[in-house]
Amino acid sequence: MAQVSSMSDGQSSTMKSITLKISRFNPEHDESSQFMEFNVNYEKWTTVLEAILDVKKHFDHSVAVRYSCRQATCGSCGMIINGKPRLACFTKISELDSNVVTVEPMNNFPVIRDLAVKFERLFDTHQKIKPYLIRDDTELESDQKEFLQTPEEVEQYIQFANCIKCGLCNSACPTMATDSSFVGPQALAQAYRYVADSRDKGKDSRLKVIDDSHGIWRCHFAGSCSQVCPKGVDPAMGIQLLRGYMLGFRD
């Protein structure tokens, strides 16, 4: 199924070209994935997502890829780029320092087609850890003031509130590679985000959810999740701090 195509029209003097290898897989009729190759021109600011969209526009519109914001905010375009999970819109081809760029669907996510994967499980586990403030009272009533926090209290969790649910951490995690039931670094980091929030009163119920044989205890602090996070969330830190609560090192 390999195919070599090239695009040379409108080439500027600063343009270079790479071979873009795209993993193709349609579960309806393919037994396994195969790569299609395209020669794609790029400038130093061209992102991998733009290269894929060039392929869709000029060579093969059937390439399946999920994307939306193109600015590392929506978390839609996570994929394996040259062996590592990255956001396609946040990865410049020139940064990869390679004449061949290989794109594959994220590991540890079921493939819908080509580069598009299912996020149901990630959203399920995210929901499972109760990603909202739990308390009896509310700030929505007219005679109530908002729940005040000091800047120091905000610092405790704001880093983890940056999560865009792109799934790169779950794709890089070595435990996720073998354990289909593991709750995953994304959900665990979000559990910490709410546990560390001074407005939240649901610590015990949240810790109960993750205190499971496929929960927090299956994290072995390999740190790969933090290395691939495109928003600086550092899930490994959140998970270890969360475990500090469970071990009684933190209140």
Binding site: E155, Q156, Y157, I158, Q159, F160, N162, A196, G223, S226, Q227, C229, P230, K231, G232, V233, D234, A236, M237, G238, Q240, L241
Partner: peptide
Amino acid sequence: VGTPARPDYPYDPASQ
């Protein structure tokens, strides 16, 4: 493992 803080680009993870 570091202290939680607002991350700055290029987001070097404090836990590593």
